[in-house]
Amino acid sequence: MTTLGTRPPETTPPAPPPTGAAPSPSPLRRVGPWLLNGYAGAVVFILFLPILVIILFSFNDPVGKFNFVWKGFSLEAWQDPFKYEPLVDAMIVSLEVAAVSTVISAVLGTLIAVALVRYRFTGSGATNTFLVLPLTTPEVVMGASLLTLFLDLNWATGFWTIVIAHAMFQISFVALTVKARVRGFDWSLEDAAMDLGATPLRTFLRVTFPLILPGVVAAAMLSFALSMDDFIITLFNSGNEVTYPLFVNNAAKTALPPQINVMATLIMLASLVVIGLSQIYTRWRTRG
């Protein structure tokens, strides 16, 4: 860095040194990469820290109703994770909402992604921009606007309005993820199948679908996680239905048992297992 100021002007550049033959690199060049890696490591640590705390506090033996201060190691919450019925019910509602909304958004999002990647059509640019809009709208506005629609239509908010709301923001995520994953594929395989006499439907089922499947699975997993996690939009459109995040929000005002941490840890472990399995599956498929 100290050499920056003394460098000759751009008009007379020095002969570039041959790569890998710098005789005595400045100390910064040797330390620089380590500093950068250390910095990145620290950021990863910040990302990971609350998760560590969540896991740690699932083993806490809290005094009183809240689980904010470490009091001592206990396996109690893990031995009885389903102790609080409303918590279990909320978790089941969350899983059901996520399952239904993910199916809806995976189908709709994949279809539109295929349309955008495979075809050139009038309005495709506008469609691309339109798909990004839900991502650039604050959740509080989307939640509020859906609520005004349901009020207008006189629909009682509950399970299905949560599903509708979740599928709405998931579609964009699915479409963008699938689009990114299938861009640059060798679509000539499709033409080969067609030239060999396969019907469009057969071509789709035997060629196109297997090609895009890993992208669809990745998008669906992301979509499921987003639904499980959503709080703001759900808060507006839930009526009397209570999802896991809503339960946590209510509990934060009254009592926070360590079972909440056990549930959060279990969700994370389940996601890791699913991701691991899908990785193994992808590797096995690409090898075979």
Binding site: V44, I51, V248, N249
Partner: peptide, 21 residues
């Protein structure tokens, strides 16, 4: 994986964890 791991731990519970930290 570590960067997207927080996505799989509920947003609210993570924020509560920061309250502890």
């Amino acid at each position: 994986g570590l960067v997207i791991l927080p996505f799989f731990v509920t947003f609210l519970v993570r924020t509560l964890a920061w309250k502890t930290i």
